[in-house]
Design a protein around this nucleic acid. Sequence first.
RNA 1: GGCGCAUUCGUCUAGAGGCCUAGGACACCUCCCUCUCAAGGAGGAGAUCACGGGUUCGAAUCCCGUAUGCGCUACCA
Length: 487
Amino acid sequence: MQSALETSVRVRFAPSPTGYPHLGNIRTALFNCLFARHHGGKFILRIEDTDTARKVEGATEAILEGLQWLGLNWDEGPYFQSQRLPVYHEIIETLLETGHAYSCYCSPQRLEAMRQEQAKRKQPPKYDRRCRDLTQQERTSFETAGIARVVRFRTPLEGETTFCDLIHGPVTFKHDTLDDFVLLKSDGYPTYHLANVVDDHLMAISHVLRADEWLSSVPRHVLLYQALNWQPPQFAHLPMILGPDRAKLSKRHGATTITEYRRQGYLPAAMINFLALLGWSLDDRTELLSIEELMEHFSLERVGKTPAIFNRDKLEWMNGVYLRRLGHDEFVEEAMPFLDRDLPDSVGRPLDRAFVSRVLSLIQERAKTLGEVPELARFFFLSELQYDAGLLLSGKLDAQSAIGALTVAAQRLEEAATWDAAALEGILRPLATDLSFSTGKFFGLLRVAVTGCTAAPPLFQTMAVLGKEKCLKRLDTAVQMLSTDSN
RNA sequence: GGCGCAUUCGUCUAGAGGCCUAGGACACCUCCCUCUCAAGGAGGAGAUCACGGGUUCGAAUCCCGUAUGCGCUACCA
């Protein structure tokens, strides 16, 4: 059963294309999307591109791509604020007419000097309201002199504004701590405060879910809604996501943009699950939830208030869980592009899908990200292995006995009629005893010879996939390496 | 400097006055499984619930201070 209010839920994700979308932005998008879906409402995408100076090329595309990749599909938009300038200008006229706003002709230089002076005197930096009560005559003379203007909000000098945040509860700000903030910049673009309020109203946004850093802007927004005679939406300020050093997430923290996680081989479902748990929880034990389950259970009441430090280890673990849960064919499908991209050029393309499939069945439970699949699977594809001969002796072996063991193994293997894991084990396990080698020592030696690594998937399965020819060749190479090495 | 918000294991978190000698997860350690790795299983260590005062028979939970952190304080969002 849904109430009328629930069906009218409309939320928006309103990023600004001044940078690539990082985890914090995406988490905000996620919570908005989950909230909308949970209540059967609409999820709207709005691009807040009102800062022409800081606009980053390609950022908008990255935002759209990131959301699509994660399956955070929006119902309306994207709307672009840069295409709605006339709308804001009209509102500005109204505000000017009703006296809630005024034109300001102060130069950026004067403002800067003023702020420095205030800082020096340990005064709160605030606009000194020089233009707040200009006469019509004064304004006209500034205009005719061609001096650029901004439009500022005429903030009430006294009183206070209280609003009830859905996550934080009631919050109060005194008006005398606010200043006359800018609504319209001299380039004709609105500031965030204006555009945000105007659009939220015109787009009938019912709930504003955004990061905590906006909390102290709410009184300005509420005052604007009142000046315009509009009903403000409900506000919910989400805890922020911090880097390991407790600072705001930035490039300094390694991968931060969502596209980078995609590139490194994280699964959308894992990203969603992980992000959802940064600031929200279902109960005291559930960690793994599908997007459908999240939509079903998400609620603002269970959103925390404390900022979260993003823990990459846990993301990796979770991604590994999702990787292992994939069906074999799905895993092959997902991993294929990564192999294509990262396997050495010397490996011929296109890759043989049947072979890749066999290889990946041994890799799937060992990878935490798709990005590490090529590295884990590398030795299956190379024609020549490159490793330090000393690795062959890592089981505390001397070169002679290693050469001996390798040679006998090669002989027995040569005679093998069938080449599958069971047959190989049938040959090699008894041979260890014959050689009076511990299985650990013997299989370890063979492993290095065959893979070039001390850690790899189980030996017999690995050899089975590798094939007889390659295995024998590698055994032979190992013997040669040890022979020349000991001379 | 002003204003605002926050404060439970290293990290993510459970906890809405007695169920808490504070639960779960990641990471870490030990053991089991085992040809290595991974996965899995069983244990362990890890939080005087920031600190100090109240309120109460009883507080991680309510109130007040203090400290610390973060955010805002732009013609940035």
